[in-house]
C-alpha cells in the first residue's frame, strides 16, 4: 500500500504543454470580400437602371415623334376617305332609288335613327365587279 501512496500524483499535462490544435482550415484567401462584391454589383445595377431610365425617356420621345407624324397626316387621309365614302354613298342612294321606285312613300336614304347627328352605315352594300 506504500507504493500506492508514492504513485498517487495529479494527472497533469505533459511538460511544455500540449501543442495548440489547428482547427482553422488553411485555405488561401481568394477574391474580394463580400462587401466589395456587394458594392460593385450594386453600382453596376444602379448604372444599368439609370440607362434603362434614359432609354425609357428616349423611347417616349420616339413615340411622341411617331404619333405626331400620324396626327399631321390624319386630315389628309380623312379627307381622302371622306370623298370616297361620299362617292359610294351617292351611288348607293342612286341604286336604292332605282330599286325602290315602285314602292309608294319610300324615302331614299332615310336614316333609321331619330337623331340629327351623323351615324355611319353599319352595312355597306357594294356591287359585284361586272
Amino acid at each position: 500500500m506504500d507504493a500506492d501512496k508514492t504513485l498517487r500524483t495529479q494527472d497533469l499535462p505533459r511538460t511544455g504543454g500540449f501543442p495548440s490544435v489547428r482547427y482553422k482550415r488553411n485555405l488561401p484567401k481568394k477574391g474580394p470580400s463580400g462587401l466589395v462584391l456587394f458594392t460593385v454589383l450594386g453600382a453596376i445595377s444602379v448604372y444599368g437602371f439609370y440607362r434603362v431610365g434614359q432609354g425609357n425617356l428616349e423611347k417616349r420621345e420616339l413615340r411622341r415623334e411617331h404619333l405626331w407624324s400620324r396626327i399631321h397626316l390624319i386630315p389628309l387621309l380623312t379627307a381622302e376617305l371622306d370623298r370616297d365614302t361620299y362617292r359610294r354613298n351617292c351611288a348607293a342612294l342612286t341604286r336604292e332609288a332605282e330599286i325602290m321606285k315602285d314602292v309608294p312613300g319610300w324615302k331614299v336614304g332615310e336614316s333609321v335613327y331619330n337623331t340629327k347627328r351623323y351615324v355611319g352605315p353599319t352595312q355597306i352594300v357594294v356591287p359585284e365587279q361586272s
Binding site: H72, I74, P75, L76, T78, A79, E80, L81, D82, R83, T85, Y86, N89, R117, Y118, G120
Partner: peptide
C-alpha cells in the same frame, strides 16, 4: 391652317358630305 380648319369642321359634323370643301383644300 387647312388641316385645322378641316378637323374643326369634322368636329362640328362627322358626316363625310359636310367637309368635302375643306377636305379638298387639305389635299
Amino acid at each position: 391652317e387647312y388641316n385645322e380648319d378641316f378637323m374643326l369642321c369634322k368636329n362640328e359634323n362627322n358626316d363625310p358630305a359636310h367637309c368635302l370643301k375643306e377636305g379638298r383644300k387639305v389635299t
